[in-house]
């Protein structure tokens, strides 16, 4: 995923480059992380359709991975998954909370 670019605040907090969320860490308040069992995944892409944060990385119609920089852990993917192969696991059980290097905090 994209490394965090340095944030330069424009006067008034105006954002002069709209659509810059791709460059920002927006998933750092996630409490639970989605974990997929790839053996049971049918690549139906229901999770990709439902994910409100576009945090399902897909390639040629197949599930690749979760974008943990932007996933906020809402759990909709796990709820909607037809074969029920996504589990929500508490972030505290992972060493790296952000899905990135973990050094930024």
């Amino acid at each position: 995923m994209n490394p965090q670019k340095k944030f330069i605040a424009a006067p008034g907090g105006i954002i002069p480059n709209p659509g810059n969320t791709a460059d920002r860490q927006t998933g750092d308040w996630r409490v639970e992380r989605p974990v997929i069992d790839m053996e049971r995944c049918t690549h139906c892409m229901i999770c990709w359709i439902y994910c409100p944060d576009s945090a399902i990385v897909a390639k040629e119609g197949r599930f690749i991975e979760f974008d943990l920089v932007h996933c906020k852990g809402c759990g909709i993917c796990a709820e909607e998954c037809p074969p029920n192969c996504i589990d929500m696991i508490e972030e505290l059980t992972f060493q790296n909370i952000n899905g990135t290097s973990g050094d930024e905090q």
Binding site: P11, G13, I15
Partner: peptide, 28 residues
Amino acid sequence: KSALLDIENPVTFGPLVSPKHAFELKLQ
């Protein structure tokens, strides 16, 4: 420099600013 009706150069006014950046913005 930035205007909402300048549709060639779209900008966002008044986004939520977290504690990470709000202090610096007020200092500006």
